[in-house]
Design a protein around this nucleic acid. Sequence first.
RNA 1: UAAGACAUAAAAAGUGGUGGGGGGGAGGAAAGUCCGGGCACCCCAAGAUUUAAUCUUGGUCCUGACAGUGGAUAACGUCCACCGUUCGUGAGAAUAGGGAAAGUGCCACAGAGACAAUGUUUCUUUGUUUUAGGGGUAAUCUCCUAAAAUGGGGUAAAAGUGAAAAGUGAGGGCCUAAGAAUCCUCUCUCCGAUGGGAGACCAAUCGGAGUGGUAAACCCUGUCUGGUGCAAGAGCAAACCCCCCACCACUUUUUUUAAAAAGUGGUGGGGGGUAAAAGUAGCUCGCUUGAGUUCAACGGCAACGUUGGACCUAGAUAGAUGACUAUCACCCCGCAGUACUGCGGGGGACAGAACCCGGCUUAUUACUUGCUUGGGUU
RNA 2: GGAAGAGUCGGAUAAUGGUUAUUCCAACGGAUUGCUAAUCCGUGACCCUUUUGGGUCUUGCGGGUUCGAAUCCCGCCUCUUCCG
Length: 115
Amino acid sequence: MLSRKYKLKRDNDFKRVFRQGRYYQEDFIKLKILENNLKINRFAFVVGLKISKKAVKRNKIRRQLDVVSQQEFDRIKPGFDIIVLPSPEILGKDYQVIKKTLINLFKKAKILWDS
RNA sequence: UAAGACAUAAAAAGUGGUGGGGGGGAGGAAAGUCCGGGCACCCCAAGAUUUAAUCUUGGUCCUGACAGUGGAUAACGUCCACCGUUCGUGAGAAUAGGGAAAGUGCCACAGAGACAAUGUUUCUUUGUUUUAGGGGUAAUCUCCUAAAAUGGGGUAAAAGUGAAAAGUGAGGGCCUAAGAAUCCUCUCUCCGAUGGGAGACCAAUCGGAGUGGUAAACCCUGUCUGGUGCAAGAGCAAACCCCCCACCACUUUUUUUAAAAAGUGGUGGGGGGUAAAAGUAGCUCGCUUGAGUUCAACGGCAACGUUGGACCUAGAUAGAUGACUAUCACCCCGCAGUACUGCGGGGGACAGAACCCGGCUUAUUACUUGCUUGGGUU
RNA sequence: GGAAGAGUCGGAUAAUGGUUAUUCCAACGGAUUGCUAAUCCGUGACCCUUUUGGGUCUUGCGGGUUCGAAUCCCGCCUCUUCCG
């Protein structure tokens, strides 16, 4: 799990990213990104009631997205606020598919170091 | 449109942050939010102290809920035991199970009539009219008999309508034109007395009554129930407003200047108030030790209770267990051999605390044990 | 976390406990027309039938009360709204 230091928390931050951030989408995941003038990245995973009414399923999706971000943490350039928005089609998708899709999105947003 | 990033001499203590290590971390339903209770604040009433206010005790009426009896419990619409009813060959299973003789409403269509009602067909009695026959009379007319039409009265059984039909059903006697009411015997239901039981109720005898259904229609009787809910509520810091004190700056007045007074603004300190703000939009408390979990003994048919020992078992706040690999335990299947082992394959559901408990309801995996009934076989 | 409300044909919308559940729009079929539009008539679903027609199930789902439930009662499901 990502440390709490790298989590986006304040409502003002969310509003700013949603209003001014860049937008990317691939399949069943959407992304909002904005530079934050900090030396670290901050993530947020928004899994609403529309995705599933079962708390277990929502928590699991959130954790899976969290783990992908943690594994790719070192490859991502610092200084961004990133909001990850899955859509209801994510339900039942395999972990490897989710991981691939999210990494592709990071590439699209051009926040990965060239490797 | 921001402050978390970043920056700040040393030491000690405290606090906080970061990194590392160790330990702990969901349920039988955590769910639905359908009931009940604790807890908190507010409302009303009474009483005490009495300036405000505080403390103590209580919750009438309305509304709503519940409804066999006895018990369990903090309480319940829950649980246990028993009674009645219904179903089943049976072991058993189900059961919102007070009152229709307090009153009101409703009972479509059909039917005479849906509650002190009605008279259709049939039967019977009587009046009137007409016709036919007979008797009496000179005749009108009158009497008797029969038939038809029509009006009034009585009417058991049967037919018919409907979910339901006048009210327990059957037999006999009396009476009558035929009947009913009434009387006798048996039977059914309800009520009362006697007997058994703690009671609901049960068995028999005696006495009395017998005037449909519906209260998950209004209602009556009995019992319980004030309202809002941890987004309850309490405190601190910061913000804003007011007042006081100190210092600084500026302006005005008095004054020869110095200085003093007043006003405005700022900084610091003190006091009072405001909005108030939320499971977290600053922090703390409430917040997890509680009608707690577990073991034993005793009491009780049981639900449960009493006593003693042991244990501490989530308290987050963008919100807690994820991915892959290996190994071990459990269950199932197959193969191999001596009751066990080895190899291979498969499986673990429903689902995640948010103040805390007791229930109900719903979702759902795998397995185990005991008792009993019916059938088959021996 | 807490508090309210709703569910009737594809979409809207009626219905004192009482025939076979109403109306409008849409869709489909037919009539009318040389062809359309408009107008008129019919159509809930499934099964059997060449048609006429017949049977069964129907007011989110499952029970109950009642002679009889869209309606009354109980338990679920789904959806919507609100809470400084």
